[in-house]
C-alpha cells in the first residue's frame, strides 16, 4: 500500500527482462523489431514529458504515466493500442491518480500542438479519443493505479550517505530510468540505489562502503546500473530516422477506422 511497497500490488508484479522484451505477435507481423518497440516507447516517454511540461504537470505525474504505458505494453500490442493515443491517455489518467488533474481538452490541445513523433498529417486526436483510450488503459492495467517511484527513497539515501552533492546527477539518472523498463523490473529503492551508485561513480565519489553497510542487494543494484549504462550506449545518440522508421510501421488509424 501507499506506505509499504512490499504490501503493494506493484511489488508482486515485478517482471523479468524476458517478460518486458517480448514483442507482441501482431507487432512482429507489422515488421516491428524489439529495437523498434524500444525506440517507440522512448519517443513516447519524451512526448509525455514535453506534453506534461506544456500542461504544467509535475514530474511524478509523468513518471506514473510512463509506468502505465510500459506496463500496458507488456501484455498489449502497439498496433492494437496506438502509442500516440496511449501516451496522452496515460498522462491524463496519471494526472487524476496523482490528484493533480489536467483538463482533457487542454491536454488534447497541447497533444495536437506537439505531435507525437514524425507526423504524417492523417493523424488526429480528439477529446473523445482520449476519453475512450482512458477507459481502455484502465482496463489494460487491470485497474491497478498506485505506482511507487524511487525519488523519495533516493533523497533519503543521499542524505543518509552524505552524498547530497551528487543529488543533481542522481536526479537526472532517475529521470532517465523512465526511458527504460527498469521501473517494471526492480523495486523503487533498488532503482534509487542503482542511480546513486552510478552517480557517485560519475562524480568520482565512493558510495561502496555505504552501500555495503546498507546490506543492499548489490547484484540488483549493479543490474540497474548496467541497464542504465546500456541504455545510454545504445540509445543516447540514436539516429532519429530509426525512430521515424519504427513509427512508420504502425498503421495510421483514421477516425473512421477507429470507431
Amino acid at each position: 500500500m501507499a506506505a509499504d511497497f512490499w504490501a503493494s500490488y506493484q511489488s508482486k508484479q515485478l517482471l523479468s527482462v524476458e517478460e518486458v522484451s517480448r514483442v507482441a505477435e501482431e507487432d512482429l507481423e507489422l515488421g516491428l523489431t524489439l529495437q523498434d518497440t524500444r525506440l517507440i516507447k522512448i519517443a513516447m516517454t519524451t512526448y509525455m514529458r514535453d506534453l506534461a511540461q506544456q500542461a504544467k504537470l509535475r514530474q511524478r505525474v509523468v513518471a506514473t504515466a510512463v509506468c502505465y504505458m510500459r506496463r500496458m505494453y507488456v501484455s498489449k500490442s502497439l498496433c492494437e493500442y496506438d502509442p500516440r493515443l496511449v501516451a496522452p491517455a496515460c498522462l491524463y489518467l496519471a494526472s487524476k491518480a496523482e490528484e493533480s488533474v489536467a483538463q482533457a481538452k487542454l491536454l488534447v490541445f497541447y497533444a495536437k500542438k506537439l505531435k507525437p513523433g514524425p507526423e504524417n498529417g492523417a493523424y488526429q486526436l480528439e477529446v473523445k479519443d482520449l476519453l475512450d483510450m482512458e477507459l481502455r488503459v484502465l482496463e489494460a492495467l487491470d485497474f491497478r493505479l498506485v505506482v511507487y517511484h524511487p525519488y523519495r527513497a533516493a533523497v533519503q539515501y543521499l542524505n543518509d550517505a552524505k552524498l547530497t552533492d551528487v543529488m543533481q546527477t542522481t536526479w537526472s539518472l532517475l529521470n532517465d530510468v523512465y526511458r527504460t523498463d527498469l521501473p517494471l523490473l526492480h523495486p523503487p529503492h533498488v532503482v534509487a540505489l542503482g542511480c546513486i551508485h552510478l552517480a557517485a561513480f560519475l562524480k568520482d565519489r565512493d558510495a561502496k562502503p555505504w552501500l555495503e553497510d546498507l546490506k543492499a542487494d548489490m547484484h540488483a543494484v549493479r543490474a540497474v546500473q548496467m541497464e542504465l549504462l546500456d541504455h545510454y550506449e545504445q540509445y543516447a545518440n540514436i539516429d532519429p530516422a530509426l525512430t521515424a522508421a519504427a513509427m512508420a510501421k504502425l498503421p495510421i488509424r483514421t477516425r473512421a477506422a477507429r470507431t
Binding site: 487524476k96 491518480a97 488533474v101 482533457a104 482512458e134 477507459l135 493505479l145
Partner: peptide, 14 residues
Amino acid sequence: GDGVSPTAIREIML
C-alpha cells in the same frame, strides 16, 4: 467532458 470521474478513480485506485 472529463472522462472517468475523480471519485471513481479514487475508489478504484485505493
